[in-house]
Measured scan of single mutants.
Amino acid sequence: NITYDSTPEDVKTWLQSKGFNPVTVNSLGVLNGAQLFSLNKDELRTVCPEGARVYSQIT
C-alpha cells in the first residue's frame, strides 16, 4: 500500500500492481504519496480516465 511518505517510484509500482492502465500509471506515477493523496476525485478524473477508480483505492 502507499502512504504519505511513498516515493513516486512506490506510487508507480502500486498503480501497476492494482492493474491500472499505462496512461494512468504514467500520469500519476510522477507524484509522491502526499501529492497523490492531496488530489480529490474530480482532479484525479481530470488527469486520467481511471481517476475515479484511483480515488476509491486511496480513500
Rank of each mutant, 00 (worst) to 15 (best):
N1T: 12
N1C: 15
N1M: 10
I2T: 03
I2S: 01
I2V: 03
I2E: 00
I2D: 00
I2G: 00
T3K: 09
T3D: 14
T3C: 11
T3V: 05
T3Q: 07
T3A: 06
Y4V: 15
Y4R: 11
Y4L: 06
Y4P: 13
Y4I: 15
Y4T: 15
D5I: 08
D5T: 11
D5M: 10
D5K: 14
D5R: 12
D5Y: 08
D5C: 06
D5L: 11
D5F: 07
S6Y: 01
S6G: 04
S6E: 01
S6C: 02
S6R: 00
S6M: 03
T7Q: 10
T7A: 10
T7R: 10
T7W: 03
T7P: 09
T7V: 07
P8T: 10
P8Y: 03
P8G: 04
P8F: 01
E9S: 13
E9V: 10
E9Y: 10
E9W: 06
E9N: 11
E9G: 10
E9Q: 12
D10P: 01
D10T: 08
D10R: 07
D10I: 05
D10K: 08
D10C: 09
D10G: 08
V11F: 01
V11G: 02
V11D: 00
V11M: 01
V11L: 03
V11I: 13
V11R: 01
V11P: 01
K12A: 11
K12P: 00
K12T: 10
K12Y: 05
K12C: 09
K12G: 07
K12M: 08
K12L: 05
T13K: 15
T13G: 11
T13H: 11
T13D: 09
T13A: 14
T13W: 07
T13M: 11
T13F: 05
W14I: 03
W14V: 04
W14P: 04
W14R: 02
W14T: 04
W14M: 04
L15C: 03
L15A: 04
L15V: 03
L15T: 02
L15Q: 00
Q16C: 12
Q16T: 14
Q16F: 11
Q16W: 08
Q16E: 13
Q16V: 13
S17N: 11
S17C: 13
S17Y: 13
S17V: 13
S17M: 12
S17Q: 15
S17L: 13
S17R: 12
K18M: 14
K18I: 07
K18C: 12
K18D: 06
K18P: 03
K18N: 13
K18S: 13
K18W: 07
K18E: 12
G19A: 07
G19Y: 02
G19S: 07
G19Q: 10
G19H: 11
G19R: 07
G19P: 00
G19W: 02
G19T: 03
F20L: 02
F20V: 05
F20C: 04
F20W: 02
N21G: 11
N21D: 09
N21M: 11
N21Q: 15
N21S: 12
P22K: 14
P22S: 11
P22D: 14
V23A: 12
V23P: 10
V23T: 14
V23F: 11
T24M: 00
T24K: 00
T24L: 03
T24G: 02
T24D: 02
T24Q: 01
T24E: 03
V25R: 05
V25W: 04
V25M: 08
V25N: 01
V25D: 05
V25C: 14
V25H: 00
N26P: 00
N26L: 10
N26D: 12
N26M: 11
N26V: 06
S27W: 05
S27L: 09
S27E: 14
S27R: 11
S27I: 09
S27T: 13
S27N: 08
L28G: 02
L28A: 02
L28V: 11
L28S: 01
G29R: 05
G29P: 00
G29E: 04
G29D: 04
G29F: 00
G29H: 00
G29K: 06
V30C: 14
V30A: 11
V30K: 15
V30T: 15
V30E: 14
V30L: 13
L31H: 05
L31M: 15
L31P: 02
L31F: 15
N32P: 05
N32R: 07
N32Q: 05
N32G: 09
N32V: 00
N32A: 07
N32M: 01
G33K: 02
G33P: 01
G33E: 01
G33N: 02
A34T: 10
A34I: 07
A34M: 12
A34L: 11
A34E: 14
A34W: 09
A34N: 09
Q35R: 08
Q35L: 03
Q35C: 06
Q35M: 08
Q35A: 14
L36E: 03
L36G: 02
L36D: 04
L36M: 13
L36S: 01
F37E: 04
F37G: 05
F37Q: 07
F37R: 09
F37H: 10
F37P: 04
F37N: 04
S38G: 12
S38F: 04
S38T: 14
S38E: 15
S38L: 06
L39G: 03
L39C: 08
L39H: 04
L39S: 08
L39V: 05
L39R: 09
K41S: 10
K41A: 14
K41C: 08
D42K: 15
D42N: 10
D42L: 08
D42W: 07
D42E: 12
D42S: 12
D42Y: 07
E43P: 01
E43S: 11
E43Y: 08
E43W: 08
E43G: 09
E43V: 11
E43N: 09
L44G: 03
L44K: 01
L44F: 11
L44P: 01
L44A: 11
R45L: 09
R45T: 14
R45M: 04
R45D: 14
R45S: 14
R45P: 06
R45N: 15
R45V: 15
R45W: 10
T46A: 14
T46F: 08
T46L: 10
T46S: 12
T46C: 07
V47A: 15
V47F: 04
C48N: 01
C48K: 03
C48Q: 04
C48E: 06
C48G: 05
P49F: 05
P49D: 10
P49N: 07
P49V: 09
E50A: 01
E50M: 02
E50K: 02
E50C: 02
E50Q: 11
E50G: 03
E50D: 06
E50H: 01
E50W: 00
E50R: 01
G51C: 01
A52Q: 11
A52R: 11
A52W: 06
A52P: 12
A52M: 15
A52G: 12
A52F: 05
A52V: 10
A52T: 13
R53C: 09
R53I: 10
R53Y: 07
R53F: 06
R53G: 12
R53V: 12
R53L: 14
R53P: 05
R53D: 12
R53A: 12
V54K: 02
V54S: 04
V54Y: 01
V54F: 01
V54A: 05
V54C: 05
Y55T: 05
Y55I: 09
Y55L: 10
Y55N: 15
S56K: 08
S56N: 14
S56T: 11
S56M: 07
S56H: 12
S56C: 08
Q57D: 15
Q57H: 14
Q57S: 13
I58Q: 04
I58K: 06
I58T: 05
I58R: 06
I58A: 07
I58M: 12
T59H: 12
T59I: 12
T59V: 11
